[in-house]
Design a protein around this nucleic acid. Structure first.
Lengths: 347, 347
DNA sequence: GTGAAAGCGCTAACAA
DNA sequence: TTGTTAGCGCTTTCAC
């Protein structure tokens, strides 16, 4: 076992002050650059800080100025590249503004989500960002909104969806536009038999995507077929079983919109197994444009959100809210279509 | 804009104490369950705590007992599912033991890594876990080890690799065993022409994998061919270009070991493009067994580490070290082979 | 069993 | 420009 690890008494501003022959306040002043300090003293203090590699205790600082400079993020699951990309973008943006980020994964469990909200409150984070989970619900869970109401009375919250009846900020993907881009793309390629695979209708954004799809078909005088809709989860298993169902129809679709890249992976696998070629026989497109879209063969045509900007926006709103600045409570994120190899003109 | 968000003065143990007609110490006692409190008072206090949904300020607590109950994790990049899986496992394990986790992504930049170590020191985390980055180096960077020496004098550190000349704990994958499993698997399938794609030899674990591979070939009287080794990065691009190179050889290999699932994805893509079938024509196996292995078609045979156990071990060692318990400084993780569809007997 | 008081390490008035 | 003082909210002796 490694020994004598923490014998070095950790050094404080008092130690620095004493050795420099100044008061603690003066040390604090050079640390925060909050007031003028005579050049000579400043240098003396700074030299000591460097010498000891002194880092002021963030807990004490936080206690004293009642700001933790921490932003809590509760995400559904960072193992999902959508959340991972967003998280890293948030971390980058936060760091640039002098904040740190505390990440929690709710793993889809509602009780855990609330637990984590409590934990973040306890840590006195300056703001909370919630991405995925209950804030994706089309109709907000009552227990959840009750808890959040309490949180929000003391910590500003920004979500990537919505919480009905609670005053919080939102930075949200324009799902209507996303769905429009994908559907139009397929229509322009000549497809008329377009199926939808994956996703639950009690999820806010999914519902919008489905509604928009129907709307566009209607506008183009294309018959809506119930059997082209296969709801489910957001994983590859759903895509796989979904496509098997579609291929059993009398009139099989010529194009498939998957609810995300995972589902698309399952769709492609199912198609491949049954001898269909993508995109020659059937086109496959999806939402999210995670790196998975780039990893599969063929590479997927997918909807991108510019995660860097998305994360920056999330953090920006959170910090502004935390610092009491004015911010719009509604901030849309504009999606973009990235065309790759999985979609082609109808033969 | 959302208004009046933080007017509710946040409540403290003094408020609770006052309303309950007891002292703050008593409230603290029921909060921490650290001493006996008369049942009646205890209930009175607890009722108030529930009523206000009171959460004690973690910063004050941390300042007071000089423990933040935070564990810092610096990972190379959570967008990589290997790190994501490990991170989530760590988070779960930490939470179970009453700790929270502060995540930083170094994104492969050495300066950033050091910055983050400093930040974690500043946050007074109780321990630091570093996964990936400088601790993967076969020969430790001097600047890095110097910095870490300082850190380690006050905060215990556990790494998934090694830092030469610094007393820190390690929880590390048995790379020799991993390589053995993969190579033996292919040999048993009858393969003799086995190529290696991706990875840098200045990376600790990669070097071991390569050395073990050579060793095993030797033992089996199989000629080692320099041209079957294609070093590179750890991404699909490397796998893609690597396999193209291999297929240009007079004697093309019948099996390929990719350094991770990303590289394997590139390999499969390259093979597919050139009309080779996996595993009928060429077998492909890889390290890490991330979900990508399960997402690709065909599903990949890959080396798994049992991430849940891995994460638990990491946290366990970190907490024990933080709490001054005895822990072994060397903790191996045993890899396992997961056979799927991408490897088959030589025809 | 319980309260008073000191202290954790810092910042922010307030004087000087 | 600088030092003194009083907290920030909690835990923990130490008496009672």
């Amino acid at each position: 076992m490694v020994s004598d690890t923490k014998d070095n008494k950790t050094i404080t501003i008092y130690d620095i002050a004493k050795e420099a022959g100044v008061s603690a306040s003066t040390v604090s002043r050079v640390l925060t650059n909050s007031a003028n300090v005579r050049k000579e003293k400043k240098e003396r203090v700074q030299a000591l800080i460097d010498k000891y590699n002194f880092k002021p205790n963030a807990l004490a600082k936080g206690l004293s100025d009642t700001k933790s400079h921490l932003i809590g993020i509760v995400s559904a699951d960072v193992r999902n590249p959508f959340y991972a990309a967003l998280y890293v973008a948030c971390e980058n943006a936060a760091r640039q503004r002098g904040y740190n980020v505390l990440l929690c994964n709710s793993l889809g469990e509602g009780t855990r989500e609330i637990e984590q909200l409590h934990m973040l409150k306890q840590q006195r984070v300056d703001a909370i960002i919630q991405i995925g989970g209950r804030v994706d619900d089309d109709v907000t869970d009552k227990t959840f909104s009750k808890e959040v109401t309490d949180i929000v009375s003391t910590i500003p919250m920004v979500v990537s969806g919505k919480i009905e009846g609670v005053k919080c900020y939102s930075v949200v993907i324009d799902a209507k536009e996303a769905s429009t881009l994908l559907t139009q793309h397929l229509l322009q390629l000549g497809h008329r038999k377009i199926a939808l695979v994956g996703g639950r209708l009690d999820v806010f954004s999914t519902k919008i995507k489905y509604d928009t799809y129907k709307e566009i078909l209607e506008k183009n005088n294309i018959e809506f077929r119930e059997e082209y809709i296969v709801n489910g989860r957001y994983d590859s298993e759903t895509g796989y079983s979904g496509v098997k169902k579609l291929l059993g129809l009398k009139e099989i679709p010529t194009a498939i919109i998957a609810i995300n890249d995972f589902a698309a992976a399952g769709v492609v696998r199912g198609l491949t197994e049954l001898g269909f070629k993508v995109p020659e026989d059937i086109s496959v497109v999806s939402y999210d444009n995670t790196y998975i879209a780039d990893l599969l063969t063929p590479k997927l045509t997918s909807i991108d959100y510019d995660y860097e900007t998305f994360g920056k926006k999330l953090i920006d709103v959170a910090i502004k809210a935390a610092e009491g600045e004015e911010v719009s409570s509604l901030n849309p994120i504009t999606p973009h279509l990235v065309v790759r190899e999985s979609s082609a003109a109808l033969r």
